[in-house]
Amino acid sequence: MVLLETSHLTKRFGGLVALRDVDLVVQERAIHSVIGPNGAGKTTLFNCITGFLVPDAGDIRFSGTSITGLRPDLVARLGIARTYQNIRLFRHLSVLDNVLIGLHPHINYSLLDAILRTPRYRRAERAAEREARELLAFVGLAGKEFFTAANLPYGDQRRLEIARALALRPKLLLLDEPTAGMNPHETEEMIRLIRRLRDERGITILLIEHDMKVVMNISDVVTVLDFGEKIAEGTPEEVRRDPRVIEAYLGRGAASGLGPSTLPLPGEA
């Protein structure tokens, strides 16, 4: 089943074309990576999908309905959550509050309920807190509920960002370089966590990643962007051998036999 599909997606900034005619198909329960050199348009793609940018042309469909140009908060409510390359937590709120804010669309009571503290309010708040704690436990942050988010160590901040995204109960999770700045051990744990997201919670993952080791390791499908255009797509193995990809990454000439014939695999580089 196709969960997310973009067709002819185009976005310009003045004269610069950040995305040109990008067709992307993300299957349900896939771990789908988007790679490409700096400035290839990966983050622009994410911003278009999440509604922060309105594309100039093209269509984005999410589980069958078009979400092109929908407001970001509505996109989020439909079940698309994201994380950021340079972690963006509500730094000065507690860990628990961060996740509770993610649960915002799923907490159902009126202003009057909140003011009068009706049973409905109490029930909803208790349920929300339970769910938040459960999510924190899932990513391994149990017991840190009342830390200030900014005081968490780096790896935990990444986890918290994921827990907050999970609070939206997403079908699709966009991860922007989740292992950036991590040491090999932390990276290993992150990879495991991403797999668990898919396997245990059935969440489809769309991921931007620079670390080829991670990409090759966990992706079902890899899409390669270069200068805003899709230049290749396929399994990690296929993409790794694609001459256009090698050219994009290593420059012209590399593909014609002067350089390595595949992208470096872990250990080879």
């Binding site: 999440t50 922060f52 407001r71 989020a76 409510r77 509050d97 509770l100 804010i101 939206l168």
Partner: peptide, 18 residues
């Protein structure tokens, strides 16, 4: 909480469905 979220980071607040 949605006010606090806006205060802390308006962009992320929106991405959280606010």
């Amino acid at each position: 909480r949605s006010w606090f979220a806006i205060r802390e980071d308006e962009h992320v607040a929106q991405a959280m469905g606010i």
